[in-house]
Amino acid sequence: MHTTSRRNFLVLSGISALAAAGCGTASGSGTRNTTTLRYQGSAGQVTPPELAESLGYLGDLELEWVGNTISGPQDIQSAASGQTDFGGAFNGAVVKLASRKAPIKAVVSYYGSDKQAYSGFYVSEKSAIRTPRDLIGKKVGMNTLGAHHEAMLDIYLKKHGLSRSEAKQVERVVVPPVNTEQSLRQRQIDVAVLGGILREKALEAGGIRKLFSDYDLRGPFSAGTYVLTERFIKQNPETVRTFVTGVGKALDWSRSTPHDEVVARLTEIVGKRKRNESADALKYWRSFGVSAPGGRIAERELSVWADWLSERGDIKSGRVSVAGLYTNEFNGNHATKGS
């Protein structure tokens, strides 16, 4: 594992999964349950499943880390192709992948926006950018295209009257999250999308101001979900139930536990996993941003992005049945009215 590149490992994992299926080892009876889930993580950060495992909410279910990713679309594509067992992304990316007939299903929310956890679009304090129209001809740095941040930019521009042709003149540039602040300060980009730990760190350093945020646009909302393939769910229903319920409990724990205690737990997790990374940025952690109890999914959290993708021409209207794209069936956490 240590001497194998992440790319090679994922390829080999995919080949192994296909070989196993070809040999008839996978049972469609719904009784076979794996006790290991392969996944991708984030350097210097802790995901809700990792927190759930640390808190003992996954029981004897183990997480097998196969590498890191900064791209939600790539992460769910890896899950859809069998290179990993679950992946997480912006709900619009989930809808888009489903429109290509990928046999995936969203099972639990894992990140969102609230007063403490949000993605902001920042400019330097001396920037002449003050209004949406000032963005025409400017570069906006974000972690990936066709996902959460680009959607928020489109909504912001449309809300303030920019035409589609004018909005296209706002250049969207892919920048790794850890380099986004530096790129803004070095004037390689005009606007930087910063969220979570990286946002807090940049604000502490000063010299930047917020143009707008996703929370400003939409208020509190869950923005991304973990997906698994329908085949995996059918073969491993109890594993899925343990995973989904455990992640939901971890999200609830993070909201109800004193902030310092949560940060201490996250820091401990990073220290124990020994991935040659720093936990220093975790002192800026504020929230996962998921307000729904147990991370339960609401249909509107997917349908709004299906509409956005249709307006962009990325998918045909009615191409995806949003109601069939997600399920709360495996979430053992308390359901509230309408969830």
Rank of each mutant, 00 (worst) to 15 (best):
177 P>Q: 12
177 P>M: 11
178 V>Y: 14
178 V>P: 10
178 V>D: 15
179 N>P: 11
179 N>H: 15
179 N>A: 15
180 T>A: 10
180 T>G: 08
180 T>E: 09
181 E>A: 10
181 E>P: 03
181 E>F: 12
182 Q>V: 11
182 Q>D: 15
182 Q>Y: 12
182 Q>R: 15
182 Q>S: 15
183 S>D: 12
183 S>F: 14
184 L>N: 05
185 R>E: 10
185 R>M: 15
185 R>K: 13
185 R>G: 02
186 Q>T: 15
186 Q>E: 15
187 R>Y: 12
188 Q>N: 14
188 Q>G: 05
188 Q>P: 00
188 Q>F: 08
189 I>F: 01
189 I>W: 00
189 I>D: 00
189 I>E: 01
190 D>W: 02
190 D>C: 09
190 D>N: 07
190 D>V: 12
190 D>G: 06
191 V>P: 00
192 A>G: 07
193 V>W: 01
194 L>R: 04
194 L>K: 06
195 G>A: 15
195 G>I: 05
196 G>H: 02
196 G>S: 06
196 G>M: 11
196 G>L: 10
196 G>R: 00
197 I>E: 07
197 I>N: 04
198 L>W: 05
198 L>Y: 06
199 R>N: 01
199 R>Y: 04
199 R>M: 09
199 R>A: 01
200 E>H: 09
200 E>R: 08
200 E>N: 15
201 K>F: 13
201 K>P: 03
202 A>T: 03
202 A>C: 05
203 L>C: 03
203 L>Y: 00
204 E>M: 12
204 E>N: 13
204 E>I: 11
205 A>H: 09
205 A>G: 09
205 A>W: 10
206 G>I: 03
206 G>F: 06
206 G>K: 02
206 G>Q: 05
206 G>S: 01
207 G>A: 06
208 I>W: 01
208 I>N: 02
208 I>K: 00
208 I>Y: 02
209 R>V: 07
209 R>E: 13
209 R>A: 11
209 R>Q: 14
209 R>L: 11
210 K>D: 08
210 K>H: 12
211 L>V: 10
211 L>C: 00
212 F>Q: 00
212 F>L: 07
212 F>I: 14
212 F>K: 04
212 F>E: 04
213 S>G: 10
213 S>H: 08
213 S>C: 15
215 Y>M: 08
216 D>G: 04
216 D>F: 05
216 D>C: 01
216 D>I: 02
216 D>Q: 01
216 D>A: 01
217 L>I: 03
218 R>A: 06
218 R>I: 03
219 G>M: 04
220 P>C: 10
220 P>Q: 08
221 F>G: 06
221 F>V: 09
221 F>Y: 14
222 S>V: 05
222 S>E: 04
222 S>R: 05
223 A>C: 14
223 A>R: 09
223 A>M: 14
223 A>F: 06
223 A>H: 09
224 G>R: 01
